[in-house]
């Protein structure tokens, strides 16, 4: 049996949840639990209170209204994969979700949990920076929003403040667009990303490029965007982009991959991801879900 002593509540309303966490010493929010419960078992965190958000119905929803996609705090990766709204308008989110761990994890794990854990190899980070998403928080002082770019402060550190709960993510629809999520793992099965990358190709000829797992926080590669926006993609342009990649990301060597391989692959992934995103924008290219590496 687990030696961990904490209390557990499953409120039905947000206010109730906020009230409980304001009164607890070291409260933790439970959604999918795939990170939290492991950390509790390992003794990495010692909550006195666990607040289960799965009783709050509104958190379970994916909505698309006024060109804003909202993903609730309880929405699992499995829900993101099968959602019609996402398939029709943001297929890259489903593409990404399919690479997160495995079915039994995706049935519980949430995108919001992913960005709250904020480990450098998370998959959702570069997605949200590319989409210029907002993280929606509720707290004792009411609701506030933080841009994805400002959300990630360091490895495992976010802009959340004491007493706050992330209630959802809002993603503005960038108009007709296509994209590509590219993830480097050691094999086809479940793995933590050694490099990941989200490229969006917008219909106005602009691009959004974000890398993950190559720095403590996701890297929105604006210099690369500035280089390629509005341009026809040529071999020379890609070569120039490679040079900028060397400046923009700072991969490290760890047990999963060397910095040399990460750097090399970041370039390959960028080139292939860009081509795939462009082809997809034109109704061609590999189907979403087919890895380009």
């Amino acid at each position: 049996m687990s030696e961990n002593q904490f209390d557990y509540v499953k409120p039905k309303f947000l206010n109730e949840a906020l009230d409980i966490i304001s009164k607890s010493v070291n409260p933790f929010i439970l959604a999918g639990g795939t990170d939290l419960i492991d950390m509790i078992k390992e003794g990495i965190v010692q909550p006195d209170m666990v607040v289960d958000l799965k009783g709050i119905e509104q958190f379970n929803q994916i909505t698309f209204k006024n060109d804003i996609l909202t993903i609730g705090a309880g929405v699992t990766f499995s829900q993101l994969i099968v959602s019609k709204v996402i398939k029709d308008n943001f297929p890259i989110i489903a593409e990404l979700s399919r690479t997160v761990a495995s079915v039994g994890i995706r049935n519980r794990a949430t995108m919001i949990g992913n960005i709250c854990s904020a480990v450098p190899c998370m998959d959702s980070g570069p997605l949200l920076t590319s989409y210029e998403a907002m993280i929606i928080l509720a707290g004792p002082k009411g609701e506030r929003k933080v841009s994805a770019e400002n959300w990630f402060i360091n490895s495992r550190k976010t802009a959340i403040e004491k007493g706050e709960i992330v209630t959802g993510i809002s993603i503005p629809y960038p108009g007709k667009h296509a994209g590509c999520f590219v993830k480097l793992g050691r094999y086809e099965g479940e793995d933590l990303a050694q490099v990941n990358l989200v490229i969006l190709a917008l219909s106005d000829g602009n691009f959004r490029v974000s890398f993950g797992s190559v720095a403590p926080v996701p890297v929105r590669a604006k210099k690369i965007e500035n280089l390629i926006n509005g341009k026809t993609i040529s071999h020379t342009l890609i070569e120039d982009a490679f040079n900028i990649i060397e400046e923009e990301i700072k991969p490290i060597t760890d047990i999963r991959a060397s910095k040399e391989y990460r750097m090399h692959m970041a370039k390959i992934m960028f080139e292939r991801g860009l081509n795939a995103a462009l082809s997809r924008l034109n109704g061609a290219g590999p189907e979403y879900g087919i890895s380009v590496i």
Binding site: S102, R186, Y187, E188, G189, E190, D191, L192, I255, R256
Partner: peptide, 23 residues
Amino acid sequence: RYSDKGKLLNASFSDYKIPTAMD
């Protein structure tokens, strides 16, 4: 993989990758 102190660095399935049905 071992550290220079002889400690095993990848004592888990997260980092000792045995193949899945996709591999």
